[in-house]
Simulated scan of single mutants.
Amino acid sequence: MTDQLTTDAADSESKIQLVTFRVNDILLGISIDCVQEINRLLDVTAVPGASRLIHGVVNLRGEVVTVIDAHQLFGVRSQTNPENQRNLVLRVDGEQIGILVDEIADILTIRQCDLSPRPSNLRSVDRRFIDSVFLTSGSIVVVLDASSLVNAIDQSDKAEPALA
């Protein structure tokens, strides 16, 4: 009986859940542990002089949250009606960020061992944002590293200073 409990505990610990979403025709995923909420695109306020990467900021129950435009981040165009777009709000290392995505796909529960290291030939997404990949029947889910998305905001501030 104890062996069965140990096996069940090991199985539950080795599984993760991913929120999957699309940006253009790229299927992406991110750990559900980082996802605070998913909402329709709220009223976004443009930030004068901000990087092209920054879609704007939103007021989320009194907190100002920076929203990244995933299309700019990955260098692709939106392929959906703006009414279908969603704001994926993440909480990473105590910070909140939003990501503008074309649509939310699904929540996947997968075994940790089914994730593969990021391949060197994957060109649709900047490698620095990739944690791993998950192969499904007929498609690939690019699993993002949430911390690198927060770092992208910091780097965009340094790369494109606001005009005086």
Rank of each mutant, 00 (worst) to 15 (best):
N39T: 13
R40L: 04
T45M: 10
A46L: 13
A50Q: 13
S51W: 10
I54K: 10
I54W: 10
H55E: 06
H55S: 01
G56Q: 05
V57H: 01
V57S: 01
V58D: 02
V58L: 03
R61H: 13
R61G: 00
G62V: 14
G62H: 14
V67S: 04
I68K: 08
I68N: 03
H71I: 06
H71S: 02
Q72E: 14
G75R: 12
V76I: 12
S78N: 09
N81S: 08
P82G: 00
E83M: 07
E83L: 11
N84E: 10
N87F: 02
G94R: 14
E95W: 05
E95T: 12
I97F: 06
I99F: 06
I99H: 02
L100S: 09
L100W: 14
D102W: 07
E103P: 07
E103S: 15
D106A: 07
T109R: 15
T109G: 04
T109I: 14
T109L: 08
I110M: 06
I110E: 02
R111N: 08
C113A: 05
D114R: 07
P117M: 02
S120G: 08
S120C: 03
N121G: 06
N121I: 11
V125I: 13
R127G: 12
R128H: 09
V133G: 02
T136G: 07
T136S: 06
G138T: 11
S139E: 11
I140L: 06
